[in-house]
Design a protein around this nucleic acid. Sequence first.
DNA 1: CCTAATCAGACTGATTCGTTCCGATTAGGA
DNA 2: TCCTAATCGGAACGAATCAGTCTGATTAGG
Lengths: 151, 151
Amino acid sequence: MRLSSLADYAVVMMGAAARHCGGTRTSAHELSDETGIPLPTAQKLVSLLTRAGLLKSTRGAGGGIKLARPAAAITLTDIIEAVEGPIALTACVESGRHDCAMEGSCSVQPHWGAINDAMRDALGSVTLASLARPPIAVPHLAAKAPMEAQA
Amino acid sequence: MRLSSLADYAVVMMGAAARHCGGTRTSAHELSDETGIPLPTAQKLVSLLTRAGLLKSTRGAGGGIKLARPAAAITLTDIIEAVEGPIALTACVESGRHDCAMEGSCSVQPHWGAINDAMRDALGSVTLASLARPPIAVPHLAAKAPMEAQA
DNA sequence: CCTAATCAGACTGATTCGTTCCGATTAGGA
DNA sequence: TCCTAATCGGAACGAATCAGTCTGATTAGG
């Protein structure tokens, strides 16, 4: 139930990239300096995020990277899935995976789908634009998500 | 962003324990047979869940385990935190942890608190009683959680 | 044509997780 | 009262995943 460090770094890096006024071209080196993330790691993340279609990269001298979409159209779900793969709390919610011995007789398995979707939607409602806003000191505003698994 | 296998197993085991009419005494061996979880692993989980106050264990011959609280008063958050520790998507949301070099200057750090609480509340709204219900074939009913991190 | 700067993929070391085994504790029966 | 049996509790081993680093391929500019 913890985000991997790479996913955490990816969110920070995308936030820094979004602060470059969206379409302005930047580079992995520049983002590394701004965020404090080690350069090799930043390069690896740029590679992953580009392959996922969140960044547009231009190679060669004078090249760089920029957001592939407006910051308001990029969510935490997009970033996390770009680094960690599909969001799946358990193995049985991944489509095409049927390696659980209790498949069919497990009584909680049908519930995981709804729970997983709720998690995914919650992360999907947080856009990169909202993260790029300067921080305001109002730490507590967690939304009450009235979810009851009935599936 | 994936639940550990132990946490997954713990949910299955608690669901099986709840199906024993709440207060009826059962054992790790019995739960292992019912769920298919290997016996040593089931024993380890019983130990963790007991220490967390979710199960009441009685040692000796004729002993066993039973739910410490009604199934309706046990949530997914309780079970997951009993096995994995406090739910913390990132290192910076854990109270007392300040080992991030970007502490203070990171612009996304203030947002994680609200996001983390939303996750925690969503899992906390799923009770063991709802999981113990026999599965119904209605796979899609994910709640729309209108959360926008404004912290 | 050459140089320089960038992204992209492959490799190594370390940490964590999952599993298994063995010992401590306790109630029941002789 | 002692012994036996069944249980929980903690410790050690092996495997898998992950974070981080390095080197190579590609491309624009001089």
